[in-house]
Simulated assay, not measured.
Amino acid sequence: MKIESLRLFHFPGSRSARVRWALLETFGDDFELLTLKLLQGEQYAADFLEMNPNHAVPVLEITWSDGSVQTMLESTAMVEWLADAFPEKQLAPQPGLSRERADYLQMLQFGGNWMDAMLWQIRVHRDLLPEADSDPKSVDRAMEKISKEVAPQLHGRLASSEYICGADFSAADIVIGHCLNWARAYGLCQEDVFKAYASRLGARPAFQKAFDDVVRK
């Protein structure tokens, strides 16, 4: 079965940006991009909640060649699926028993789960909750864990390799790269090795287009 069309529900710079980046690296730009006004609450509209009861982006709507429609809700799953669906783009080691595949999946999930969860705690308690409900200690704990636990692991890899899993760019760099830029916006991961890595990623045309709607301060 073939893909008839793809539609991505998006908000600039958010987790949907990593999916937009992955789409541009694999599928090209022949997909529909629908930007939601999250700050105005469009994610709570009834028709959107039918697609995603979690009232969040991304949502990737896949229309198959038989006319059926499928939705995906998890950004890391979308990135992994796209990398595997387009093996000619060489964004992932071939599925199977290999050290390379195991390491790639480990880092893909490390970014999409462990690192992302800490960054989300910072985002929620620093930027989203009312002051009366926010917990500065949660921000401090997450910042410390990234500085003392996450950053050294990434630094060790990037000090000896151009990309997170070695010499070649992969879909793991899409997820880790998005999280790293998120962390750097909070003043974390400022060392030269991270700056150089971010520069390499930022030079990719797909990256530039994926983040062309982000307002820079």
Rank of each mutant, 00 (worst) to 15 (best):
H155R: 12
H155S: 09
Q90Y: 02
L33A: 07
S161Y: 11
S138H: 01
A185L: 13
F27T: 07
Q94T: 13
S170C: 08
W182T: 05
G111F: 08
E42I: 04
K148D: 10
Q121A: 05
L91C: 05
P95W: 08
E191R: 02
D127E: 14
C165S: 10
S68I: 01
D135I: 02
V214Y: 07
S5W: 04
Q109F: 14
Y104Q: 09
D133I: 02
H125V: 00
V69W: 08
E4F: 04
D66P: 06
F11V: 12
S138M: 08
Y163H: 12
V175W: 11
V139S: 03
E25H: 05
G112V: 03
I122M: 14
M1I: 12
L108E: 12
I164A: 07
S147L: 04
D168L: 06
I122W: 11
D192G: 06
L24R: 06
S68F: 01
R15P: 00
A198W: 01
V150P: 04
R216G: 03
G96A: 04
L158P: 01
L158Q: 02
N54D: 12
N54P: 00
F48S: 05
A45R: 15
R157L: 13
P12V: 09
P93W: 09
A22M: 15
A185S: 14
D30T: 11
W81A: 13
G187H: 10
P87E: 12
V19R: 01
K148H: 03
F211L: 10
A92D: 12
L34T: 12
C179R: 10
A183E: 11
K2Y: 04
F169S: 13
V19E: 10
A117Q: 14
L129S: 02
T71Y: 02
F48I: 06
L34W: 08
P58K: 12
A210G: 09
I174A: 09
D47A: 12
P87L: 08
A151R: 00
I122F: 12
S65R: 07
P136T: 07
L105K: 04
P95M: 07
R184W: 07
K145D: 09
S134I: 01
A159H: 01
F48P: 02
A77G: 02
S65Q: 14
G111E: 08
W21T: 09
L129N: 02
E74W: 05
W182S: 04
F110C: 06
R200Q: 09
P130A: 06
A17G: 07
R204Y: 03
M1C: 08
S16N: 08
L180Q: 05
F48G: 06
V79F: 11
T71D: 03
P136M: 06
A85I: 03
T76H: 04
L91V: 04
K209N: 10
W64N: 12
A210T: 10
D168W: 01
L180V: 13
H10V: 09
G156E: 00
Q43V: 03
A172N: 03
G41N: 10
I122R: 06
L36V: 10
S134E: 03
W21L: 09
C165H: 04
M1L: 15
A142R: 00
L105M: 13
L128F: 08
